[in-house]
Design a protein around this nucleic acid. Structure first.
Lengths: 234, 234
DNA sequence: ACAAAATTAAAACGAACGTTTAATTCAATT
DNA sequence: AATTGAATTAAACGTTCGTTTTAATTTTGT
């Protein structure tokens, strides 16, 4: 097996050079926008090397995603484990669940001296790519979402399924968009200089999402039944 | 001028049939993933018609976006006008500003008997597409964001620029992801049956984002990270 | 009605795409 | 040193791409 992470040895194998170049190019130009020729040229590698090492362009895409997604999601589950262990019998506070859900993702963004930036830009694009290339990647999230969904439900026991469902998705939307913003920070209008610190950003996201999820229940929305009528607009 | 909305007359012009087909196909397979041949075939139109009516594929993309973006953003600004008028001298409540920011977008999603669904899926993809095709579209948002940014700042006068910046972006992230969720509702896990009503969804988003933005300021971010925590209230 | 302009149609262009093939080089083991 | 399997190379394959060209057709103005 020649599975060696690119930072372990000084000499990068052809496989790793392809992965690094593809990751960067996918993030910049999209999956369909990056040709195998561009990738192999940027990696200083022969054109046929992609099909030799990964079988096809689709196989390369799979490999690019899996290289980061596995470690990142196990980190999130491990953090959730610790949080639930600390809470004992009672459900952990929603802030801690959200922190376990979000922090490893944002942190991975700035890890490795910013070398993961390309993959994170790719990640925030993952949801919106044509399903052709990304369906094989979705299985990485199945077990993760199972665990976290029950954790969210336990942390907010009075919330309805619909409130949990939307609250979780709102948090996912914030998280993804935050990665996008972090990658384009210096090109965005109204951006204060001090907005990039990772710790602060994570805490902003957690406090924002926690407040949002709590407000989902018991606020001015007075529709009780599942198929309740519409509400008059303010 | 042959600029006629597709629903006005029974006979659709070639131009409109191309726009409709392109919109659907762009949403399904992405910008680069949709070939001019596929689009013209789906529209029952000759291949060369795209270059004749729109100059190039890029011109077609521009036209697809502009057809919806103009009306949608003027609706948002009009709603903000009304809200600020009602508030008189004092700044309007944050809930109303967020409502003006979000409601027209979510509503546009389900308008026209769901015919706008394709464009909305395309919209939620717009941010993540390669800049090649979308940079010409961004100008639609410049004036809009200017107006709303000051509205947000006025509604939350004690918030720092950074808190406003992130709060606004969190709300944008929620809005975009909500469109995505609404388009894939029936394929998502943990989705209760009653989660699709537009009015309820808008109110969920508004109450969630309002609570989140309020919590951005003054709430004790008590985590003392290892990164030396100059946190909150500059 | 008829000429002029606008639109549609069919065919072809060159370029770029993912992939395959066959020959060659490299690294390790006997 | 010889051998063998893996890794790399260069060239070509067939396909599809966006665009252009030329001709036929429809629509429009007078």
């Amino acid at each position: 097996m020649t599975t060696e992470t690119s930072s372990a040895k000084h000499k990068q194998t052809t496989r790793d050079r392809i992965l690094d170049a593809a990751e960067r190019m996918f993030a910049d130009k999209g999956l369909d926008g990056s040709s195998v020729r561009d990738i192999t040229t940027a990696a200083n590698v022969n054109l046929a090397a992609v099909n030799y090492h990964f079988g096809s362009k689709t196989g390369l895409i799979e490999a690019v995603f899996s290289r980061h997604l596995g470690p990142m999601n196990t980190a999130r589950l491990a953090l959730l484990d610790r949080v639930e262990e600390q809470a004992g019998e009672s459900p952990p506070p929603i802030e801690s669940v959200l922190d376990a859900f979000i922090r490893p993702v944002v942190m991975h963004h700035l890890a490795e001296h910013g070398a993961n930036d390309a993959f994170m830009r790719l990640m925030s694009r993952c949801l919106n790519e044509p399903p052709t290339h990304t369906e094989q990647v979705k299985h990485h999230f199945d077990a993760l979402m199972d665990r976290f969904h029950t954790a969210f439900s336990r942390a907010l026991p009075d919330h309805s399924p619909s409130e949990i469902f939307w609250g979780v998705h709102f948090s996912i939307g914030i998280m993804h968009h935050t990665l996008h913003v972090l990658s384009h920070l210096h090109h965005l209008p109204f951006c204060p200089a001090e907005s990039a610190d990772a710790q602060t950003v994570v805490e902003r996201v957690v406090s924002y999402t926690a407040a949002g999820m709590k407000a989902q229940h018991g606020s001015t929305i007075s529709v009780k039944g599942p198929c309740g009528g519409t509400i008059s607009t303010p």
